[in-house]
Simulated scan of single mutants.
Amino acid sequence: MRIKTLTAASLTALMLGAPAAMADTWRYAFEEALDEVQGVFAQKFKEEVEANSDHEVQLFPFGTLGESDNILEQTQSGILQFVNQSPGFTGALIPEAQVFLVPYLLPEDEQQLYSFFRDSEAINGIFPELYAEQGLELLTMYPEGEVMVTSNRPIAAPADFDDVKVRVMTNPLLVSSYQAFGATPTPLPWGEVYGGLQTGIIDGHENPAFFIESTRTFEVQEHITRLGHNNFTTALMANKDFFDGLSEEDQQLIRNATDAAFEHILEYQQGLTEASLEAIEAAKPSITVTTLSEEERAPFRATTEQVEATFLEIGGPRAQEVLDQMKADLEAAGS
């Protein structure tokens, strides 16, 4: 999502204060603005911690402390206590997390999706071990909304993606997915996306509707297409040394705040996609929003097996285990 360059001043300001490991002031960075989904989650987490303890949580929205890789590194080193980041960015560090980018793996049905994120053995059992190997305590994963594609030409079939440069996060599996769709995936920093759409460096991008609305990228696009291929996933992590060094009481405080923020963000998202699309259409009546039929989605859905094969090649030593468990969890969530 959005990224900016870390400045010396911001890093200096961040490091002033109590040591990270046992600080009463906990620092929490995320990839979006305060009024976007990750920001709403973070504010609820902060509210719960501060209402139930003497601790303070400082929030650092997108761009405050640098790019996504900067805030992850700062969390691993203990400068930050918490970071909210999507598997699209952590995939280089934890390749198994790229499973969330396999198209048509996550369900469209909202209740099945929420049940999966609450109860998944992959999320609650396997991934905490993988994150711990990188010095991170995985606190939760949660969905942010249906991913849609913006463009300046209508997209109804893979052939329509021919020569269309779609901006994606820098992630090999996401690149593979859009190549399978027939597009030209183009990794680009978020700060260059709006200008890139204006000048034709890129022709489109993918994001949830709320983010397309809040970042105003619809202003320089003519079409939004709902392929139904994914839901944007993100994760809240803590520095593991910090978390392990806390008292049992504070660890439980964090878990409780995480659970409260998780349920809050699922409730917050009720109707958010449709409301965002309505706001976009009101602001730009000429834009078209198209939901592909199941028949139109079929050739896109047919690429899933190809992308899964790529995931098994590049998804790390536990890729097969993760994929198999994800599928079992999704089946259980749908029953």
Results as ranks from 00 to 15, higher is better:
4 K>P: 00
6 L>R: 13
14 L>T: 01
15 M>N: 07
16 L>W: 06
17 G>S: 06
19 P>S: 15
21 A>Q: 15
25 T>D: 13
26 W>E: 03
26 W>T: 10
29 A>Q: 06
41 F>Y: 15
44 K>C: 08
45 F>C: 04
51 A>S: 14
53 S>K: 03
66 G>D: 01
68 S>G: 01
73 E>R: 15
80 L>G: 13
85 Q>W: 13
86 S>I: 14
87 P>N: 13
91 G>P: 02
93 L>V: 13
101 L>A: 15
101 L>W: 10
101 L>T: 10
102 V>N: 10
116 F>R: 08
117 F>R: 10
127 F>K: 08
134 Q>N: 12
134 Q>T: 06
135 G>L: 07
136 L>R: 03
136 L>F: 02
138 L>S: 09
139 L>W: 03
143 P>L: 12
144 E>P: 03
150 T>F: 05
151 S>R: 07
159 A>T: 09
160 D>L: 12
162 D>L: 11
163 D>A: 11
165 K>H: 04
167 R>F: 01
168 V>I: 12
169 M>G: 07
169 M>L: 11
177 S>P: 00
188 L>T: 08
191 G>M: 10
194 Y>T: 09
195 G>R: 15
203 D>E: 11
205 H>E: 12
209 A>L: 08
218 F>C: 03
220 V>A: 02
221 Q>E: 07
221 Q>C: 08
225 T>Q: 07
226 R>K: 15
227 L>H: 03
232 F>M: 03
234 T>V: 03
242 F>M: 15
246 L>D: 13
251 Q>G: 10
251 Q>F: 08
252 Q>N: 14
253 L>R: 09
255 R>P: 05
255 R>E: 11
262 F>S: 04
264 H>R: 12
272 L>T: 02
278 E>I: 09
278 E>A: 15
284 K>F: 05
284 K>A: 10
287 I>S: 02
289 V>F: 05
290 T>L: 00
293 S>E: 01
295 E>G: 05
297 R>P: 01
298 A>G: 01
308 E>P: 03
308 E>Q: 11
311 F>R: 03
313 E>D: 14
316 G>I: 06
316 G>Y: 05
322 V>Q: 00
323 L>A: 00
325 Q>Y: 01
331 E>N: 09
334 G>D: 06
